[in-house]
Design a protein around this nucleic acid. Structure first.
Lengths: 237, 237
DNA sequence: ATTACACATATTGTATTATAATATGCTTTA
DNA sequence: TAAAGCATATTATAATACAATATGTGTAAT
């Protein structure tokens, strides 16, 4: 087990087991080792093992019952919107497989969020979007600055401005999806300014309280990534 | 504590504390009682209390550190897509407040899911949609049959047919949103047949592999509920 | 007076042991 | 063959002890 400083024992075991479960290292029928076996394996007390098991159960990965042991739940029950679960997923499966699914989700969430931001975002919310856009422009001019971080901040600030807690709750998911997306599309760019302009159009639409336009501009932005990825998938065949 | 048969102790405490946290019964600054106090309060061992605390921490509701105690996390960290968390939320806050947010999310997710279903759903997936539609038609004719259940099955089957695990993962969320939605819109209906026809149009579009049309029909369906709710909110003022 | 250091203290973190509850399979019996 | 009961493996809960970790307090040094 990779002992990580600053995390307590049960959290480390949670990490290790969570990763292993999602990587498919446990047979779905036979399930996990018993608590006693896990104690031996990791050289820790049952207290720590049980707390780890409870945390994984809370995330929908496993369930445990007396005499039956610890079973892996069907993947359809895993809480994919849990940050840890999402991380374990990306660690284990080649990101190309989920990249398209990510983009499909972004295509559902972000245009709608942009429209809601245009309709309900406060002036302060919209100022935060402007701030992120400024950072992106700076980064486009100055290679030292981080375009990536500014990009994430831009999209997150729009989720926040939607004034809908369910949209904002997806910020980690969207950030992850966006990061993976960027990693795959960046090689082909060289047009930082063009991307920045596309983002600016979204911001302007929100500022001018044009929900439909904001939605369309966001759809366009994501569709560019989608087109690129589909070509890449096709090419890989 | 309402002791529920068939749930073990730590799960019952998790339920009770989760409910109380989301209902705002704990001061955000002072946090929760210490483990020792919780033991006294519920008359249970530290083992059970700690396991409950770990489960709640896994859902993002709390965090605990030595010497500092158990703190309530900011609501923005709560995992709203966890079924339990969602349930606690609906139990505590008047559903009217979240109903519009639910509909905004449905408006993002479901039209896109319908489009994906039309593009990627297998024939078998689409048959399941047809089955649910049949049930809805039966229920429209026969008052004994449950329209509600058939309606939920219809929407769920489309999420499944999207062939995107992130969409399907939202099934509990969508089902909850839809249930709340129905509770508020049903009084004004009397047009079960009209609703069933709207659903049929979505199905037909998916069957004929028309993603755009499927999306539009689903948008129309949800927009009807949205219009109704907005009128109700306006009327309540 | 202010800073730095050490120490006391409260609270969670981990370990250990013991017992209870529960479900599964096997054996016995009718 | 079926039903009842018993053995057993595994998790569930409890109780106790000690370790680790922050937080504040007081004391000493500058």
């Amino acid at each position: 087990m990779a002992r990580i400083e600053n995390l307590n024992l049960s959290q480390q075991v949670t990490n290790e087991l969570g990763r292993a479960i999602i990587a498919g290292e446990f047979n779905a029928e036979s399930g996990l080792p018993t608590e006693a076996q896990l104690c031996d394996e990791y050289g820790i007390s049952r207290t720590a093992v049980r707390e780890a098991v409870k945390m994984l159960a809370a995330k929908g990965l496993i369930s445990s019952r007396p005499r039956q042991g610890i079973r892996v739940e069907p993947a359809s029950n895993w809480n994919l919107y849990d940050t840890s679960v999402l991380k374990w997923m990306l660690d284990s499966s080649p990101s190309m497989l989920v990249l398209k699914e990510f983009l499909q989700m972004r295509m559902a969430i972000e245009p709608q969020a942009a429209a809601l931001a245009a309709e309900y975002g406060t002036d302060e919310d919209i100022q935060h979007i402007a701030d992120a856009l400024d950072e992106m422009n700076k980064a486009a001019a100055d290679p030292k600055a981080s375009m990536h971080e500014a990009d994430l901040a831009f999209h997150t600030s729009i989720l926040f401005a939607s004034r809908n807690r369910f949209f904002f709750q997806l910020r980690d998911f969207i950030r992850t999806a966006l990061s993976v997306s960027i990693q795959h599309t960046t090689p082909a760019k060289g047009n930082d300014m063009g991307v920045a302009e596309d983002h600016a159009k979204i911001y302007t639409a929100i500022l001018n309280r044009q929900p439909e336009r904001a939605k369309n501009m966001m759809t366009y932005l994501i569709d560019e990534a989608m087109t690129f990825i589909e070509a890449e998938i096709k090419g890989a065949k």
